[in-house]
Simulated scan of single mutants.
Amino acid sequence: MARRLRPVGLDFAEVAPVRHVFTAEVAAAPEAVYRALAEQVEGWPRWFKAITLARPTDGGAGREIRLAGGVRFHETVMAKDPGQRYAYRVDETNAPGMRALLEEWLLTPSGTGTRVRWTFATDGPAPFRLALAAARPALGRSFRSAVRALDARLATDRPAGNC
């Protein structure tokens, strides 16, 4: 059964009790990465293996996400800054223990590519926080794998000569 989470603002990415921040460099331009994140939501399962379904809701103001293992999220998009930032918070989930969750993707030009920074900001009771601390390495691996897959996918979309 879905549970309603505490609504949080964008500042939660900086003040959450549990924050995991990961970065990676990709060859794709910030605009291309942003399009894949914010405008091509249904394509997430093609490059983020943990996601089995992603679809925009409410005319793009929200998202429905399903993860391998059956976890579901109903989200509100909090920031859509083309080429720079994409952020969303979870409003409802069937995941146990979680009280609040916000994810933020920051995109910064880096040479001819992009530096991608993902912040996973959450809150829950002490056992949940401990479990998330232990899950940090797995979250990092999942992020790095997803970003590599996204970069490879975007490379096939780039016209020749624009590498």
Rank of each mutant, 00 (worst) to 15 (best):
P17G: 13
E103T: 09
A61W: 01
A24C: 05
F120A: 05
A149M: 10
V21S: 13
A36K: 08
S142Y: 02
R153M: 14
P17F: 07
E64C: 09
P82T: 08
E25C: 09
F128P: 10
R85P: 04
R3V: 10
V90Q: 01
L53W: 02
V147G: 00
P56F: 01
G83N: 04
D11F: 06
T156M: 01
W44S: 05
M98K: 07
L130S: 13
R115K: 08
F143A: 03
R136N: 09
L132R: 11
A28H: 07
P56D: 11
V116C: 09
E92P: 03
R19V: 02
P137S: 09
G113K: 04
L150E: 06
A79Y: 06
P159K: 14
D151A: 04
T156H: 00
P82A: 10
A32Y: 01
T23C: 12
G59S: 01
A121R: 08
L10Q: 10
W105C: 06
G69F: 07
L107C: 10
L102K: 07
G70E: 11
H20V: 14
G69S: 08
A134Q: 11
F22I: 13
V18N: 06
R72H: 12
R19E: 07
R148I: 03
D58W: 07
R99W: 12
R4I: 05
D91W: 04
L10T: 13
R89E: 06
L10I: 12
D58F: 09
D157G: 03
G70F: 08
R117T: 15
F128N: 08
R3W: 08
A152H: 12
A36V: 04
L5S: 06
L132V: 01
I65D: 05
Y34W: 10
A121Q: 03
K49A: 15
P30C: 07
A138R: 11
R66A: 14
G9K: 00
E14S: 12
D123Q: 00
D157E: 15
D151V: 05
P137C: 11
A28D: 03
G70Y: 04
R153P: 01
M98C: 14
F143P: 07
P125T: 07
G97I: 15
T122I: 14
K49S: 12
F73H: 03
L37R: 14
G97W: 00
V21W: 06
T112I: 11
F22D: 13
G70W: 02
P7I: 02
R85D: 04
G9Y: 01
L139Y: 12
E104C: 11
L53M: 06
R85H: 05
L5P: 07
A68Q: 13
G113E: 05
V15T: 15
I51P: 02
V71A: 13
